Simulated scan of single mutants.
Amino acid sequence: MSDQVSFGYEDIAPEDKTARVGGVFSSVASKYDIMNDAMSGGLHRLWKDQFVRRVKPQPGEAVLDMAGGTGDIAFRMAAKGAEVVVADINQDMLDVGIERAMERGLSEGAGGLSWSCQNAEQLSYPDRQFDAYTIAFGIRNVTHIDRALAEAHRVLKFGGRFYCLEFSTMTWPGMKQAYDSYSHKLVPQIGKAVAGDENSYRYLIESIRRFPPMPEFEKLIRDAGFARTRVEPIMGGLVAIHSGWKI
């Protein structure tokens, strides 16, 4: 089974995962932000605010926001003066982000934002291009996480920083069981009611369960060449901010 990768609770051929994940996000793109509010009770906004505070984007810095699709992280960083490339493998997600930017009065390429369709495992950028690389709620959907991390390391300048916000494994006693029950039973039903798509949200919850625990994922970041790695659990590990530096 070593030549297979996870798609939720399924094990499938690696060449099939990219297409199937693409189908999921094309299906949910138009309702993605509404569903984030519905699933988290709006908490995802606070998590993203905290994430950007940790990244500390600076005026004029070049930041690659991978899997940035709808622009939630990028808008926050661009407001700090950073020059942000919003990259995503899924054009439907990028289209939603571009539309949201236009609603804010930002034409494409304006306001420190640009948009690019990119595969996290094979970026088109040259070595040492960016001051920071961010990815929020996207790394678990990558087919080969180690390749994506290696690419993140490659495109960062020396002294550049990597930040990842992702769902993780809750460690609070008693809360883990309650959250597991909520996520497996209710989230797909919310997806059905709000986005008209139960199966895609079932996959997204299952993908969280298959994602490596915090110490294991931190090791993958170190193995990619990053130093001074750190993990910051939020809400007992419901989500976590992982970081590392290219030095």
Rank of each mutant, 00 (worst) to 15 (best):
V55R: 02
L238K: 06
A224G: 15
H44K: 06
I247E: 15
A150Q: 13
K185A: 12
S183P: 02
C117Q: 15
K246R: 12
I98L: 09
G225H: 03
T169R: 07
L94S: 06
A195F: 06
A79T: 12
R76E: 14
M102W: 13
A240R: 10
C117R: 12
L238C: 10
G41I: 03
V142P: 00
A136Y: 05
W115I: 01
Q118H: 00
A224L: 13
K192H: 06
S2Y: 12
F25A: 03
V86H: 00
Q58G: 09
G112D: 08
I73G: 04
V84K: 07
T143Q: 14
V239A: 13
E151W: 12
R228C: 13
S26N: 15
I190K: 08
Q177N: 15
N36K: 11
K246M: 08
G68N: 04
K157Q: 02
A67E: 01
D72I: 06
K185H: 14
Q129P: 03
D33A: 11
S168V: 09
G138D: 01
Y201C: 10
E10N: 08
F217T: 05
A82T: 07
R53I: 05
R222I: 15
A136E: 06
G191W: 03
G225Q: 04
H184P: 03
G160F: 01
W115D: 00
D88Y: 05
I89V: 11
L186Q: 12
R54F: 13
V187N: 13
E10Q: 07
S27M: 09
P233G: 13
E166S: 06
R45T: 04
E198G: 08
G237C: 11
G60H: 12
T143Y: 15
I247P: 14
D223C: 00
R202Y: 08
A227H: 12
R20Y: 01
S114H: 07
R154F: 12
Q91V: 11
V55E: 00
E218G: 05
L46I: 08
F51Q: 10
G105M: 02
M39W: 10
V155D: 05
C117E: 12
L186Y: 14
F25Y: 08
I139D: 02
D223Y: 05
L94Q: 06
S40W: 10
E99R: 14
P59N: 07
V96I: 10
T171S: 11
G160T: 02
R54G: 09
A150P: 02
V84F: 09
S114P: 07
K80G: 10
G97I: 02
H242G: 01
K80E: 15
S30A: 13
S2W: 13
C117I: 14
T18P: 00
V142T: 03
F7D: 14
G112W: 12
S26K: 15
F217Q: 07
M66K: 02
D146F: 01
R222F: 09
A87K: 01
D146N: 13
Y203P: 04
S30H: 15
K157I: 03
A132R: 05
